[in-house]
Design a protein around this nucleic acid. Structure first.
Lengths: 346, 346
DNA sequence: GATGCTTACCCAATCGATTGGGTTGTTGAC
DNA sequence: GTCAACAACCCAATCGATTGGGTAAGCATC
């Protein structure tokens, strides 16, 4: 078995054809078309012989050649801020799986949320002739997306949404609301938000969901209790430092729109001599695998990251097939753990 | 600018050629070869006109077509256990950067450390006609590597090494030794190791480095104080539970060969009513961005993850260029933090 | 026995870039 | 004045798969 690469040379359609004494085009039709075209192109017996030989020789079509002719690469380009962000890495796993199921392969690139890099990476992807793009680093004020749309580049957004373009996201507004409900019910009245980057819909929506619901419940959130920050641990720590230093009265609960920022916030809380959970509740977002395993388990809004990735692929497939697609917003669930389990007397 | 995709059709060599009234092959030579071939192929004036027009039309060569002819795709395939492992994600960032600098693009796939998946993903990559592979999920007992070598597939290993194949890794033995020295000097005499997966050289080397040095220092490590585990947080917690439950006397220090396992271990320590740092020192490996930011900052061996990725690309480039390459082992540094900062009376 | 319809194929162009081998026309040396 | 050398190009095959248009044989129908 697997004589394909053993000898060295890869097997081509022509090899198979000449070995069977038939024309390459016939072989192509047999191997190519599900059965609609195959029927009519060759006899059942021939088809069987071809398939048999293809298997034996380990034939695998050259995607370069096929793509050259068909103008399709069966490649999806994926752009994310950074793959070392666990959230995006998991979404990418979903993409990878779903794409493979559809017979697509994927390219990923990191844009580091830098508009210039976004452009450059997009261009590289298009130069590679990807069939479409999954954009996981969309900025709310992005001009790039409009350009891509104008150039009729097929793409969908993932994780972050931008009005007017199809996207696969978590229902971030709802996620924020869940946290507001939870903290309110626990008796907290002074809260603060570590809000993330203002150009990301995830940050904006989660914050808005939280703040709007909080006010609807009758709570108040002073302006300086919402601090925009980076999404990483250091960013969360810095934001928490600011909050703990300047908010008066000191909040009894912090909502960070991202688990990593929440972990940073926990560090800040601790270095102020306060206890996470007891003195200050902390809630994160995404429920990454770390949250439950931290020394002090972190309450977090679980977002279906894997499904978001998978859904993005389905959406893009829809676009590629020329269908009209609708944005999908997947539902999050709040997981309460020790970091916000205790009540707070009003 | 950028009229390339505006109209819709992509520009080809032939377009440029006919617009200038010269032959496509001339255009190709001008645009293609650095200047050695270009000189002799066309006059300086023509070359300039061609380059000018190419820029104006936004010409970008079709990699499908070029690859079909040259049999090279300028694609590197990367296989990792999982990209949601922060360590691999960062190495991949290094790969991505270095590959881009060399004009290569990269495919990544997750094998989940499953031998069958490793095979499948490798095949998919080769079917895509990648020029070479960077393998980040090598198992010490892997037959796949020998097969690939026999089939003359160009590849290098990353992160994990296997004797006989070129690899870019951290000097994991040294890393383990650094930890042994550190804990010994702090006065610990009862220690345990959360050792990771026995099929990964990272786990084996770090553990061996630690244990051998420990014994060389005069210390003892009972057999049941080395617990093999998964690399993730839950795996680390489980291993620590076993150690805390069964080791007698209870160790005063834990060395986990991976930060995530260390975080899990910290959780286990805490749920046994013990204090990390005071009662039980914990040291991790890789110094991921989280380590320093944890509520109790984690001591960790910093491995040059980004450089490991970059080095892997350089090695693979060497192999692709037909050079003989030597494995590279990059030096780690120990970062001591609160989780192991306190001494322990003997 | 001419026509029409299948069945089971074959032919050749095509996708876009690359490359080994020409073919001109000009210049310089002797 | 001739020949060689060179500059500046052009030609055409090639990579491997795809696909619109054949065509020949066989059979049935009228």
């Amino acid at each position: 078995m697997d004589e394909s690469t053993a000898g060295g040379r890869t097997v081509t359609l022509k090899d198979l054809a000449s070995e069977l004494g038939i024309h390459p085009s016939t072989v192509s039709r047999i191997l190519h078309s599900g059965s609609e075209v195959a029927r009519g192109a060759a006899s059942v017996a021939t088809a069987e012989r071809v398939r048999e030989l293809a298997r034996k020789r380990g034939y695998s079509p050259d995607p370069q050649a096929a793509g050259l002719r068909t103008r399709r690469t069966r490649l999806m380009g994926v752009i994310v801020p950074r793959l070392s962000d666990l959230v995006l890495a998991i979404m990418y796993e979903g993409i990878d799986e779903a794409a493979a199921e559809l017979g697509y392969s994927t390219f990923v690139m990191n844009s580091r949320d830098d508009p210039e890099e976004q452009r450059r990476k997009t261009d590289t992807m298009l130069a590679r002739r990807v069939d479409g793009l999954i954009i996981g680093d969309a900025h709310l004020d992005s001009g790039l997306l409009r350009e891509l749309a104008a150039r009729k580049v097929p793409f969908v957004l993932m994780n972050r949404r931008v009005p007017g373009f199809p996207s696969a996201t978590c229902d971030d507004v709802l996620g924020g609301e869940l946290v507001a409900d939870h903290l309110w019910r626990k008796g907290h009245r002074n809260v603060a938000v570590i809000a993330g980057e203002p150009y990301a819909s995830t940050a904006v929506d989660r914050t808005a969901g939280f703040v709007d619901r909080w006010r609807a419940l009758g709570g108040q959130i002073p302006r300086n209790a919402v601090v925009w920050s980076r999404f990483d641990t250091a960013g969360g720590r810095e934001a928490a430092e600011i909050i703990l230093a300047h908010c008066n009265p000191r909040p009894t609960a912090l909502f960070a729109v991202n688990d990593f920022a929440a972990i940073g916030a926990m560090g800040a809380v601790r270095s102020h001599g306060l206890s996470v959970g007891r003195d200050v509740a902390v809630v994160g977002f995404n429920d990454t695998s770390l949250a439950a395993e931290l020394p002090i388990p972190l309450s977090s809004v679980r977002s279906p990251m894997l499904d978001i990735g998978r859904t993005a692929v389905q959406l893009l497939k829809g676009v590629l097939d020329g269908r009209e697609v609708e944005s999908v917003r997947l539902e999050p669930v709040l997981c309460v753990r020790e970091s916000s389990a205790f009540g707070n007397a009003v």
